[in-house]
Simulated scan of single mutants.
Amino acid sequence: MTMLDIKIELTTKPKEKPAPDELGFGHYFTDHMFVLDYTEGIGWHDGRIVPYQPLSLDPSAMIFHYGQSVFEGLKAYVTVNNEALLFRADRNFKRLNNSNARLCIPEIDEQYALEALKQLVSIDREWIPSAPGTSLYIRPFIIATEPNLGVHPSKNYQFIIIMSPSGSYYKEGINPVKIMVEEQFVRAVKGGTGEAKTGGNYASALKGQQIADKEGYSQTLWLDGKENKYVEEVGSMNIFFKINGTVITPALNGSILPGITRDSMIQVLKSKQIPVEERRISIDEVVEAAHQGTLEEVFGTGTAAVISPVGELKYLDEKIIINNGEIGEVSQMLYDTLTGIQNGKIEDTFGWTIRL
């Protein structure tokens, strides 16, 4: 497939754009979306950019019954020089194919998907907000569309990209949030779908999030599904701990999503000569470090929030206050560095940005 394969139908009814202070996260959507079909025996075909619109699916479409779906999340930004750019979009499509393999979904052409995304963003460029802390959130996803109740991989799929102008993911913004360690439920296990970005992982996490919400916490910190001992992820983010000068994040073990922001943070830390380790870390080690006064910072990382400092951690009946409930020096540096690269204020020496 080439760019010549993408048909374009522009909307005749452009939507009114929301004010920057009304954005929130994931509430508004741009005028257009990209759609690509898959048919067994033909492959991926009929790529098109069309006006944003509802989907028409058979009630027996397999996505509704067996959850065969994957998705990604990335962003487009307007720089201080009024250039539009994407951040590590190639890595998102590579990870999408890794998720596809786990969910028995046919691989997409990553370069074609990137070119389609670039064209879609160019068409809806005016939807990229420019206020500080805002961006255009991009959601590529694939769903099984074959109308069949038999339990097998679907023979038909749709790959769709929608986009949403967004503000801060958390109402707290960059201010520290409170998280709660989940003691009863688990998010994923090694050998399951934890390292794939699929909807079922998020559905299984809703119960823990509901419990955290009721107790006044922003997110759930998940422990491993085997021993209920080792830290894995926090909500929809990867987690980092700064203990006695060293930044530690759980090693990718088959049940943890390999976050692209996570990888970016690790590279930035190494470039700043800040010690960083990817290894197993137990909740007991975290609590002990807090008791000894060596737990200096805790923060989550992800596309939506970029970085989310943690000011309080609740485990069992203990509430642990981290860095006096304030954002830490390393957390602030990482946030400033990544957002600086994304908005063009800092030179991208890593080769992460794609200018449109």
Score class of each variant (00 low, 15 high):
M1E: 14
M1C: 09
L4G: 09
I6C: 12
L10T: 11
T11I: 14
P14Y: 12
D21C: 02
H27F: 04
Y28C: 04
T30E: 01
M33P: 11
F34H: 09
V35T: 00
V35K: 02
L36H: 13
L36Y: 05
L36G: 03
Y38Q: 01
H45E: 10
D46A: 15
V50E: 14
V50S: 08
Q53Y: 04
D58V: 10
I63P: 00
Y66P: 01
G67K: 08
S69R: 12
A76V: 03
Y77Q: 06
V78A: 11
N82D: 15
E83T: 09
E83Q: 15
L85E: 08
D90V: 14
F93T: 12
A101T: 05
L103N: 13
C104S: 15
I105R: 05
I108K: 02
I108M: 08
Q111R: 08
A113V: 11
A116S: 13
L120E: 02
L120D: 04
L120V: 05
I123D: 13
W127P: 08
I128R: 08
P132K: 08
G133A: 12
T134F: 01
S135L: 05
L136G: 14
I138E: 03
R139D: 05
P140H: 10
F141I: 09
I143P: 06
P147M: 12
P147W: 09
P153W: 12
K155V: 00
Y157A: 05
I161V: 14
I161R: 06
G167Q: 06
Y169C: 08
Y169N: 04
Y170N: 01
K171D: 07
K171P: 00
K171C: 01
E172G: 02
M180S: 00
V181Q: 02
E183K: 12
Q184F: 01
F185Y: 15
F185L: 13
V186D: 04
R187F: 00
A188E: 00
T193A: 12
K197N: 03
N201H: 11
A203D: 00
A205G: 15
K214T: 00
G216S: 03
W222L: 13
V231A: 10
E232G: 11
S236K: 06
N238P: 09
I239W: 12
F240I: 10
F241Q: 03
K242H: 02
I243K: 15
G245N: 06
I248C: 06
I248W: 05
T249E: 11
P250A: 07
L252Q: 11
I256N: 15
L257Q: 06
T261L: 01
S271T: 05
I274A: 10
V276D: 00
V276N: 02
E277K: 15
R279I: 03
V287P: 00
V287A: 07
V287E: 04
E288W: 06
G293M: 08
V298N: 12
V298D: 13
T301M: 03
T301D: 01
A304P: 13
A304D: 02
I307L: 15
I307W: 02
G311T: 04
E312V: 07
L313Y: 09
I321A: 07
I321V: 15
M333F: 03
Y335N: 07
L338E: 12
Q342G: 05
Q342D: 00
G344L: 01
K345G: 10
E347W: 03
G351V: 09
G351A: 08
